[in-house]
């Protein structure tokens, strides 16, 4: 796992630059909880890394979790990150080279399934010591991580952590995991767009079929009517809508229709 050893000083400085930006932000952490679609709109409009920091703080507040953290690594081993961890903990993580023992990293790298931290292997002495230290630094006893595979070997991890009982955490993740998986991917899309010197990936356009489906939904057809009109099964329609909502960066069908209208992709 080459990149585990590549958390170099310039990267940690980069992390700090993102975090410092937040201190000058008048809409700081104490700001009221924003609506999720407002947060996602802000994320989509972001043209600087500072906006990612603001978005992750707002997302953390929206979901009511102690922490949210995003970090990524490019194929050349470069790493970036932002999140709500205390600076002291970030420094300590780097200094102690916890990347080498953190079961979240070893459990997620090169994979693509979301992981509840309590299913990871914390049995080694080093992992247990790391966990104790993390908890003492306010990371929380519970966590959930979503690995993301980007283009050209890019790998990113979107994590939430919190202090609560197992039952509370299970209920939270069961309710929110699909939304969080989508949010994690939207976050990564934006982080990729902001990579210095990189031309943003052209987002996959909606196909005529998807545009037809979204248009019929926008004019008030229900799913059965849309499926019948397009001569496809409702199951197929659900897959097309799921796919369209992801391309539109939306959380649900209503949100997806609104975004398609706002972007002029559909006209009713």
């Amino acid at each position: 796992m080459g990149w585990l050893n590549n958390w170099t000083t310039p990267r940690s400085l980069r992390w700090r630059i993102w975090r410092h930006a937040r201190k000058g932000n008048p809409l700081g952490y104490a700001a009221m909880t924003q609506r999720l679609d407002t947060i996602l709109h802000g994320l989509e409009q972001a043209d600087q890394h500072e906006a990612l920091q603001r978005a992750i703080e707002a997302l953390s507040a929206f979901y009511g979790v102690d922490h949210m953290v995003y970090h990524w690594v490019s194929s050349s081993g470069e790493q970036y990150g932002c999140g709500t961890y205390d600076d002291v903990w970030v420094e300590r993580y780097l200094e102690k080279q916890y990347l080498r023992v953190d079961p979240v990293i070893t459990g997620c790298y090169q994979r693509f399934h979301p992981v509840d931290w309590k299913r990871l292997d914390w049995s080694s002495k080093a992992a247990r010591a790391f966990q104790k230290d993390a908890i003492e630094h306010g990371v929380g006893n519970q966590g959930f991580s979503i690995p993301i595979r980007g283009p050209n070997g890019q790998f990113a991890l979107f994590s939430l952590s919190h202090n609560c009982t197992d039952d509370e955490w299970d209920a939270f993740t069961e309710t929110n995991r699909r939304d969080l998986i989508l949010v994690a991917h939207y976050f990564n899309k934006k982080a990729l767009d902001l990579e210095p010197g990189r031309t943003p990936e052209p987002s996959q356009p909606l196909s005529p079929r998807e545009i037809d489906a979204m248009t019929l939904l926008a004019v008030g057809y229900n799913r059965a009517q849309v499926a019948e009109t397009l001569s496809i099964s409702e199951h197929t329609l659900r897959v097309y809508i799921e796919s369209a909502r992801f391309k539109l960066g939306a959380m649900n069908t209503t949100h997806a229709v609104a975004r398609a209208l706002a972007r002029g992709l559909i006209v009713v």
Binding site: F112, I148, R149, R178, I181, L182, A184, H185, Q204, S207, P208, R209, E210, I232, V239, Y240, E242, S243, R245, F246, K247
Partner: peptide
């Protein structure tokens, strides 16, 4: 199994069957 957010056989070779839809979601 592969997530449809990356390269997939269906999107690379079978778009004529999917009505031209590039199927893409971390939930598919």
């Amino acid at each position: 199994l592969l997530p449809t957010t990356g390269r997939t056989m269906v999107n690379d070779h079978f778009k004529d069957i999917t009505g031209g839809v590039h199927i893409e979601s971390p939930l598919i």
